[in-house]
Design a protein around this nucleic acid. Structure first.
Lengths: 217, 217
DNA sequence: CGGTTTTCGCTACGACCCGTAGCGTAACCA
DNA sequence: TGGTTACGCTACGGGTCGTAGCGAAAACCG
């Protein structure tokens, strides 16, 4: 179930994991990550303690520290699993696809474990390069696939013009990703107002046609 | 200098602040808020302690607790002051105005005290209604003025059509605010890539014309 | 099978921070 | 000059941190 060796936290000696000796329990990994999300729901980020997580997961606190360096990395992995469920629906038109993925994304962000966990680790990552890299590979890069998929699909339908060159295409992917994800996150977490069908429709209209055309459906 | 009585944290007795007795030191307020930002830069959110802030500010820890309920509220106020410096430049066209405010907003977000502080309090606010309200009034609502100002200015120039009714105008304000602020924040903090002139230009083009037209300048 | 290696659960520990209470002093007002 | 509130300081119980040390369990290997 864990999509990669959940991990490492390279043991005190050597880099690669040894192939001899007692293997680590995979069940413990899933139990710990589930317990982390559960604790995030009930306690939020600041009151979440690793001792409590270990208790919920039914493992010793030391076991937890053998696998993750600390709270930050643990929560990144726990939250990343939530976003892996995201998929891009094929509803026949670019507008309908965008509306669909916006609503699905918002549904994940509506869950308390995602709300309190995501922003907290982003905040911590501003002073921790390795944590930032972990977020990048575990969450950000993994979800950019949705933009690539959606855009090429729209180009195949003829709804969007092809990109002039690959370099411009990459810039375009990154820009669209930040605009879509950023807008939904900001609406949901900062403005703290619901991302409902009405908002998704208005947002999609703005993204497709820009400010120039008549706003508000 | 503090734009409102920095606050309350209503004393043990009564609601309004009494007009008798020794008044609170205004200098202490500014010193505490400055010390908070300083500590955010050096320590980040998680390692910031109120004892340390009090030490830097040259006040007793108890003084700090008499004015703010806790770390969350203190950081909200400390960060809010940073965003009050934001202004909307008048560069003659809607596109130039947007590019300008995006770059100014990004410049504030580039400061370490804003980066680590803002996301952290947003994370905490997901389980704390009063904190969310404090963020709303101290930061979010205060900056929406930029959108209102920019949009009405553009309508005056004839660059944007007038809104059909006030209710639609409000929805439009909120939408644009979330898109602009959210995109810049996401690019800057989550994707962790620079908001430079190139990105600001690309973003503005997308916001004005939408995905339909040829992307990438 | 006995030996090796690594993980696991458990306990205990010093270090740090929290948030509050208590007290004497300082500043302002009537 | 009293009355009232803010301030600095000290001290405290309570909680969490991250680590060390131990014996037992679980895999691999000759």
């Amino acid at each position: 179930m864990p999509r990669r060796t959940p991990d490492p936290h390279p043991g005190p000696s050597g880099t690669g994991r040894p192939r001899t000796g007692r293997p680590r329990s995979a069940a413990a990994d899933t139990a710990i990550l589930a317990a982390t999300r559960e604790a995030l729901v009930e306690l939020g980020w600041s009151r979440l303690t690793l001792g409590d997580v270990a208790l919920r997961a039914g493992v010793a606190k030391t076991t937890l520290y053998r696998r993750w360096p600390g709270k930050n990395e643990l929560v990144v992995d726990a939250v990343a699993e939530l976003f892996d469920a995201l998929e891009l629906p094929d509803r026949g038109s670019l507008a309908a696809d965008i509306e669909g993925v916006v609503l699905r994304f918002a549904a994940i962000l509506a869950r308390p474990e995602a709300r309190s966990g995501l922003m907290a680790v982003v905040a911590e990552s501003t002073l921790d390069d390795s944590l930032r890299e972990r977020i990048r590979t575990s969450i950000v890069e993994r979800q950019k696939r949705l933009v690539r998929e959606g855009k090429t699909r729209a180009q195949g339908r003829g709804e969007l013009p092809p990109d002039p060159d690959p370099e411009a295409a990459d810039r375009s992917f990154d820009l669209i990703f930040d605009v879509v994800a950023g807008s939904v996150v900001h609406r949901s977490l900062v403005s703290a107002e619901p991302v409902d069908e009405t908002w998704a429709r208005d947002f999609t209209a703005l993204l497709l046609a820009g400010l120039g055309s008549t706003p508000a459906r």
